[in-house]
């Protein structure tokens, strides 16, 4: 019985080798993730204490072991919140324009194109722009608000894209049913379309927040530096958690490096938590979308 010939060894080996390479590629990609998380956790836990979370660096000398990132955590939370307050309305309205009003015209196509291009604006350029515009041109001082402006530029395209995607998922029947009842278009959008897409939009916004919460470069030239607590994001330099890590990591002392690791751990916890919550919302909602 020799009807069915086996495939040649060469082909079999090639198939196996490629399979091996593909698995290897995946392993290679996961190794740095594990390594980063492991180092951050093991090195960060050392100083991950109450003092770190409740004290600033005010009056802490270069070699001192104490001090904390309270001022940086407060700064990051305020800056990210302000950035969201700016970018979410603009981003959401832009998405509404693209989906509901744009009708594929020239304006909507160029907005759509530049949203994509904006995704690629380097974060350091966003920072430099706010510095050039807000601080040099308009003459304001370094502040948390200036940092929020820079972060919001980075958030906007992400918010637009995710909101746009969610709005397009809303079934047309739903809109038409509302129109058929004589509800005007804008009220249909506000009362029917947005609530239907709500959880999806929240997920997108949280992922965008998670992304900018870890940004350091734009803060350098907008928020600047401070070692003390500044609760007012509109007046004077603030700190941000990523900035804190950068600042401490660039210092030569072990005590500072320890603080950098702990700052990194805190930052990763915040970012991962935001990510996780966003994914949970998306996951919790997905069965409804499948139907």
């Amino acid at each position: 019985m020799t009807t069915i010939q086996h495939i040649s060894t060469g082909r079999r080996i090639k198939d196996r080798v490629v399979q091996g390479l593909v698995y290897l590629a995946f392993a290679l990609a996961v190794v740095p993730l594990i390594s980063v998380l492991w180092l951050v956790i093991s090195n960060g836990l050392e100083r991950f204490d109450l003092e770190f979370l409740t004290h600033s660096m005010n009056g802490i000398g270069a070699r001192d072991a104490h001090g904390g990132a309270y001022h940086a955590i407060i700064g990051t939370l305020e800056q990210v919140l302000l950035a969201s307050l700016i970018s979410v309305p603009i981003g959401l309205l832009t998405a509404i324009y693209l989906v509901e009003y744009g009708n594929g015209g020239r304006l909507s196509r160029s907005i759509s194109f530049f949203v994509d291009v904006m995704t690629g604006v380097p974060s350091v350029v966003a920072g430099l722009f706010v510095f050039a515009f807000w601080i040099l041109f308009l003459g304001f001082q370094f502040s948390g608000w200036a940092g929020a402006l820079a972060l919001s530029i980075l958030m906007m395209p992400t918010v637009v894209r995710s909101a746009e995607e969610m709005l397009r998922l809303v079934p047309g029947d739903l809109r038409e049913a509302s129109y058929a009842l004589g509800v005007p278009k804008w009220r249909t959008i506000v009362k029917v379309v947005l609530p239907t897409a709500f959880t999806g939009i929240v997920t997108g916004v949280m992922l965008a927040v998670a992304r900018v919460a870890g940004e350091t470069a734009p803060l350098l030239m907008t928020v600047f530096f401070t070692n003390s607590i500044n609760n007012d994001p509109f007046n004077g330099p603030q700190m941000g958690l990523p900035l804190f890590v950068f600042d401490q990591a660039a210092r030569p002392n072990d005590t500072a490096i320890d603080r950098a690791w702990t700052g990194a751990l805190t930052l990763i916890l915040i970012v991962m938590l935001l990510n996780l919550v966003a994914r949970l919302i998306a996951w919790w909602r997905s069965p409804a979308r499948g139907r």
């Binding site: 990609a29 993730l33 390594s35 980063v36 951050v40």
Partner: peptide, 21 residues
């Protein structure tokens, strides 16, 4: 999702990891 998590790690943390490890 695991691969996407790589993108979630802040840049400054990669810098720290790069220097130390």
């Amino acid at each position: 999702y695991l691969i996407d998590l790589l993108a979630a790690v802040p840049s400054v943390v990669y810098g720290l990891w790069g220097v130390a490890f």
